[in-house]
């Protein structure tokens, strides 16, 4: 009799542990963790650990050959006080990101919105046309042929033929035009995943909401956009914003492909270019890590800011 009671108590205790203590719940969900294990081992190894290592190295002098030496905030101080090229890189990155980020985001949304009004067959073709630059990746290299500075460049050829200019414009080496060229190419290639997300978000909106809107007196497409469409697709707007911030602050390959590396007078030198300069060329890993950490902080900060802004849409 008493053993039965003890047994019962034990079972209850076990159930209690299983349900309410952390360790019990972890043990109970072994299968789930097994599913997660392979992915998260690699995720930790190639994303989490690298971020932590970067933060650590950013406080050291490290040239790969010798062990890292702790030097406190020196890398950061040097970046802001003694590195004119870095200040230039910040300026370039912000100019580039402020134009391509919001403009690219807006363009992605506006075109998705327009395309959404088309009949399904044409819509599918238009989505393909607008998304092709993103999916074909390195093909932006073709722009470097089109913008070629000699008279073989097609754009120069057209401009000279029309008499707009009579000398070939050095698109990719004249500091006046370099940023413009990079922005054009970036806008062309960066509608991206955000665009698809917008397209999908628009198609997923409940059509009855619009019917209800007409009844409630919404009278043009702009009101419809602000009061129905945008609030209904907030999650997609946010996803697209995240994609857009990440790609515009991570830009560097386009600059290298269009204007060479380093570019003339550092006219399109971005933060990531600077990071590559110190990481790949000069092997000052500590300094490069400080740049990486700053970029990381800026991106996360901006993402938080945008998330808060987007919460206000449609109110």
């Amino acid at each position: 009799m008493s053993t039965a009671v003890v047994e019962k108590k034990k079972r209850e205790l076990k159930d209690y542990e299983k349900k309410w203590t952390l360790w019990g719940r972890i043990k109970d969900n072994k299968a789930s963790y097994l599913f997660l294990l392979p992915y998260y081992v690699l995720f930790v190894m190639f994303t989490i650990v690298p971020v932590i290592i970067s933060v650590y190295y950013s406080f050291t002098y490290y040239n790969i050959l010798e062990a890292p030496q702790f030097i406190g905030w020196d890398n950061y101080l040097n970046l802001f006080l003694h590195d004119d090229v870095f200040i230039l890189a910040i300026q370039n990155t912000f100019i580039f990101a402020i134009i391509t980020g919001p403009l690219g985001y807006l363009a992605a949304f506006v075109f998705a919105w327009f395309i959404n009004e088309l009949p399904p067959k044409i819509r599918a073709i238009m989505i393909l046309i607008f998304y092709a630059p993103t999916i074909s990746g390195q093909v932006y290299m073709v722009w470097s042929i089109m913008f070629s500075g000699d008279s073989y460049g097609w754009i120069n050829g057209v401009l000279m033929n029309w008499g707009i200019t009579n000398t070939a414009i050095q698109w990719t080496t004249d500091t006046k035009y370099m940023m413009f060229v990079c922005i054009v190419v970036a806008l062309w290639s960066s509608l991206g995943a955000g665009f698809l997300s917008h397209v999908a978000g628009l198609q997923g909106i409940d059509k009855e909401l619009y019917e209800a809107g007409y009844v409630d007196g919404i009278s043009n497409r702009w009101q419809e956009l602000w009061y129905i469409t945008l609030p209904s697709m907030k999650p997609q707007l946010l996803f697209a914003a995240v994609m857009s911030i990440t790609s515009s602050f991570g830009a560097a390959d386009i600059m290298t492909a269009m204007c060479g590396f380093p570019s003339t007078d550092y006219a399109v030198h971005t933060i990531v270019n600077h990071l590559q300069d110190y990481g790949d060329v000069r092997f000052e890993m500590g300094y490069a890590s400080a740049i990486a950490v700053l970029l990381f902080a800026v991106c996360l900060g901006l993402n938080r800011l945008i998330q808060n802004l987007l919460k206000k849409v449609g109110t």
Partner: peptide
Amino acid sequence: TAVIWALMFPATVTYIPNYLI
């Protein structure tokens, strides 16, 4: 959430430690 945060910065940020790893 860790994965969502990882979407928020460009992969270049981690390429030096990745190289070392």
